[in-house]
Amino acid sequence: MLSKSQARAFFFVGTGLCALAFVGLTVDTFGKIPAQTGQAQLTEQVIRGKDLWDHNNCMGCHTLLGEGAYYAPELTKVIDRRGPVFVAAMLRDPQAMYPGQRKMQQYNFNEAEIGDLVAFLSWIGKVDTNGFPAKPPLAQGNVGPAANRPVVFQQLCTACHSLGGVGGNVGPALDGVGKKFDAAYIGKWLEDPAAVKPGTKMPKLPLTADQIHELTTFLGSQGK
């Protein structure tokens, strides 16, 4: 039967070996982190963005690298998903972008600070995370017509609207929208929704004339 001194020896030897292995792996990891995270791209602007991220406790609602709270979306790949234009608009006025939905605080960031945060999120999006977050394996949009949609549609419009069952449910689905409205109306609507329909919840998006043209063509063809 095991004696107390043997039990003690098991504890000390086991703990010692594991602690040594852990310290060894940590040293090795620190040798590899600079290349894996793109440490060379940590500009002053990115670091200012990280400071803003920390000092406003963004992790208190969002997750980043999967860490944080579960009240707001995971943001590691948000620049890939939504693009810098959407993220900047969101930071300018969060509640306008998702009207009537779960609220994000209005931080009143200035344009420089918004640039810093976007730079930080762009940097984190390029970190090699061993494949996290995984592409949803059962998603409908992985194949088929979604591949041919304009980038601006995928990044901005799908945050609130769905098409073919893929996208948000904040605003109405856009299936067959080209049958309901003509291209001229859609174009005006995109330029300034409130001018067409006062009191609408849809925000005025920071779109260029080219993007409005692209979206008008794309949406006008839906349902035809």
Binding site: R8, F10, F11, F22, N130
Partner: peptide, 29 residues
């Protein structure tokens, strides 16, 4: 107290390197 050693021994045997389950997807090897 004898079994206390065994149990805390197992705790460290698994727990120290088990820290690795936080290092899957954060930009580490």
């Amino acid at each position: 107290e004898k079994w206390l050693y065994v149990i805390v021994g197992f705790t460290f045997l698994s727990g120290i390197l088990g820290t690795g389950h936080h290092y899957y997807y954060i930009g580490t090897p």
